[in-house]
Design a protein around this nucleic acid. Structure first.
Lengths: 337, 337
DNA sequence: AACTGCCAAGTAATCGATTACATGGGCCTG
DNA sequence: CAGGCCCATGTAATCGATTACTTGGCAGTT
């Protein structure tokens, strides 16, 4: 019936107290006398009062939300991370706003916009292609860098990409492969450079060589994996095993190989990275490096909440461990001849 | 340097005008004299002023955001829809808050919370399992039901599930199949009932019968698809074709069939529903019914924006067409003997 | 009885914008 | 030249909470 919802004034009137008392009852009940508290709570129930977060946040100089800024919202890789983040943030009374850097104009502008808009108490940034200079804005909220970052002092959450690459390479070598290729992401991408570095390091440690032709370039998408497969098949001296920097590329690669009448793992063994859900349902099942995405999400939210609570732009960084998941896409190399 | 960001007062002082003029310059520039406008804009630039959305929204009695409430944030099906929604909402100056109904307690409570919290100017609801009664709260914002709804007068966006099912069945029948099964979602789910109805209708129209054993039950997940495959293989009289109510289940089904040494489409032809990205990279490529998810997202946002602008709880509903995508998972039935 | 101290509750300033209404100057018209 | 109008701008109330500061009452102490 009542179009407008009750305000704190209404509750105060009904309970016969001041608005200050109502506010206190709701935020720190311990400081109000039990009898008063009860009558306020009853008035709240009677009026159907809901706190107006906007007004509260304005007064408190906060926004009540955190923005997750991803390169591309349509990428399902993030959804599971969002779920973890959302659970933690909701618990803390914060909302999760999502936005991507591809809508509209320049990605760095988008970041700058969100940093200065004052729409968030904190930002979680997934896009490693953004310029670090964009973060130099006065009065910006705390920012946590996730996944695609490395090297510097800004608070971040990453996974151990080098170790993951080493796990993959060692597993392939363990199956008997000596010609192990790498399907990379975009060259400038940190995930690419880290996984590539891990790949090289692991090969050297094994005394194997990395032929430059064996490094194929993709962009993490399934389509780019399929394209890489066509290049691989055209190679005069094909590697017998391939470590793919993402499961998506591995899926595309396998699909294209099959379509060409070749077999995985008969003609080429494959290890992916991520452990996306479909990996275990493929034929053959995809051996891969698991990234614990829910944990990445929850830890990100937790670290950011700490920074927000501390009112600090700096905070700890964390490296999350990865794990080899063995399935059927790896077998000994084909016996020549 | 300055910890605090500039307020409208600062801009007014620098420009030598009143705050009203600054506000007007920013919101409806046409009503202020060009000279004044320019000096205000210069002052804005000089001070680095950013409008405080919280304060503006409080005054305007709106929140500046829309909540998308999905059953499960981790489900990648939604991410592409989010992308479409976000693009439209951002354009309109609104933020997209995401939340799921699984975190915390009772899903209906979660919906109720978001309806009354006053944190959103509108809600987009993807969870068809919620009770419609939950929407009966006074003073709630406009709500648009997406995808998992049917039948009533509330504004909604759906796809033509029956027609999609008919496309699938007709395609299978066209390849020569007479024993066509259906792999459903949860029985109570509207998508299930609609697609099942379409399946039955199409079979009748073709003069084919639907054997009850040929209706397998899943829950839209890959795992449930794999489980269904095991039940299918145990069937004394297996259908030679299967229409799956989701691509995810089709993926799981195909995987399990292959693992058992049978072949798709050699032993069974399959049509999915959704056209998820991986469908075209599977072996064989999955024939499926495409749902235009980006369009679902953009249209949802547009319809909701209309309702918000009109200040109305009601609005038009829309049915979005689906399309058959032909790939290699359908072939003529195996010749008996 | 007077004084001190403390606890619960009230008063009112404040967060930063928007906007209804008031004002004043310039121009046009008769 | 007086009257009326309009346009650009200023004044100040307002959105709905939080919270620093103040007040008043009661208990305990001497």
């Amino acid at each position: 019936m009542d179009r407008k919802t009750a305000t704190i004034q209404d509750v105060a009137r009904v309970a016969g107290v001041s608005t200050a008392t109502v506010s206190r009852t709701l935020s720190k009940p311990s400081v109000v006398a039990p009898a008063t508290r009860e009558s306020v709570l009853r008035a709240v129930a009677d009026t159907g009062y809901r706190i107006n977060t906007l007004a509260a946040n304005l007064r408190r100089q906060r926004t009540g939300s955190v923005i997750a800024l991803v390169p591309n919202l349509a990428n399902p890789f993030f959804s599971q991370i969002f779920a973890g983040m959302s659970a933690v943030l909701t618990e803390a009374g914060l909302g999760l706003l999502v936005a991507d850097t591809q809508t509209g104009t320049d990605p760095d502008d988008r970041l700058g916009y969100h940093l200065t808009s004052g729409n968030a108490d904190g930002l979680i940034l997934f896009d490693g292609t953004l310029s670090r200079d964009s973060l130099n804005v006065p009065g910006r909220p705390p920012v946590l860098l996730v996944s695609e970052w490395m090297e510097d002092d800004l608070p971040s959450i990453t996974v151990d990409n080098r170790h993951g690459a080493a796990l993959a390479v060692n597993h392939l070598a363990g199956a008997g492969h000596r010609a192990i290729g790498f399907l990379s992401g975009p060259p400038a991408n940190v995930l690419t450079t880290e996984r590539l570095a891990g790949y090289h390091a692991a090969l050297s440690a094994l005394g194997l060589i990395a032929h430059p032709d064996w490094i194929l370039e993709g962009d993490f998408t399934m389509d780019s994996g399929a394209a890489a497969a066509r290049r691989w098949m055209a190679l005069p001296d094909r590697p017998t095993a391939l470590f793919c920097a993402s499961d998506e590329m591995a899926v595309g690669f396998m699909g294209a190989v099959h379509r060409a009448g070749l077999s995985v793992p008969g003609d080429i063994s494959i290890v992916g990275f991520d452990n996306i859900e479909v990996a275990q349902h493929l034929t053959p099942g995809l051996t891969t490096i698991r990234q614990p995405r829910t944990i990445i999400g929850t830890r990100s939210a937790e670290l950011l909440l700490d920074m927000i609570a501390a009112g600090s732009l700096s905070g700890p960084s964390e490296v999350i461990e990865v794990e080899l998941i063995t399935r059927a896409s790896v077998a000994p190399p084909p016996t020549p001849g």
